[in-house]
Amino acid sequence: MTSTPNSPGRGGDPVGDPVENPVTHTHDLTEPTVAETVHGVIDSALDEQVPVPAGPPVSAAAAALTARKAARRETFRLLLRRPEFVIGTLIVAFWVACAIGGRALAPKDPFTGDPFQTHASPGSEYWLGTDRLGRDVLSRVISGARDVLLVAPISAVIGVAVGTILGLVMGYFRGPTDDILSRIVEAFLSLPVAVVGLLALVVLGPSNWTVIGVVGLLFAPIVARTVRAAVLSERELDYVQAARLQGESAPYIMFREILPNVTGPIIVELTVRIGYAIFTIATLSFLGVGIQPPSPDWGLMISEEYSQIINGYWWPVVYPSLAIASLVIAVNLIADSLQGVLSR
């Protein structure tokens, strides 16, 4: 099983495998999949005793293509049937549009404020009000999507790529390699990513690229653990033995035999990591070591304004907070649906 999307903790990934099987014991029957139904059609013509009759007028390749397409379409159809997937996708699409459109969509300049309009309340002129420098909160929230939506996915991809290789090596070789790497991974897991990220960024100096590198590398052990678990159960299957008996090399078995069968957990993990990358990077920016001014980053906006909230100036804090919340929840909704569909 894979790790669940929302189990992973504060940047860490503590939760084991909540076991939840959508199909409860159906006793002596199993749920037929669409693909199996396809086989039913293809197979029932075949009688093992009788010499094989001429095939139907469909070519083999075409049949396979249809089957594969059908499987993919089926996955997509199942996803679309989940309202949480649709909602999540719409929200993410909205923020991606903001990230790309940015300046063009923003009604005002997000960087320069009107010094006579500091902390203006939300109204007809400034829909979401202005901040302490008189900058339009709406424009800043819209253009604030860009940095986080650039930095978070890249660091998630780095983390998943490095973690996948690490996990494959640990799970496949087991023995001393695994023991040593597992200890190191375990040590990394005992540190919340935001905490150790703070230390690393203080040392390295904050910039978008160091944030990407630090968060990516700190995610790697978490991903490695998930991938390792998937590889370990995969490795028990006889096809791995068969490949060895066929004389396949270790890299071939890892990357060509095992990897294709653990893509499900890896895709889910990637989505989950994107969610946590947003989470972590927002936190780091809030703590002052993430994305740097003058970026209208949401975490940064909150950090600049949160002390003013008790004076009643809530809008420069609450609106970027809503932005962060909507984005991370949306990504997690997508991850949750993917998990539900892919781990069937």
């Binding site: 086989h39 293809i42 075949l46 095939g55 139907p56 083999a60 049949a63 396979a64 293509l65 089957a67």
Partner: peptide
């Protein structure tokens, strides 16, 4: 049969 070749 050859029809089985491209199936999983």
């Amino acid at each position: 049969t050859p029809r089985h070749l491209d199936l999983k």
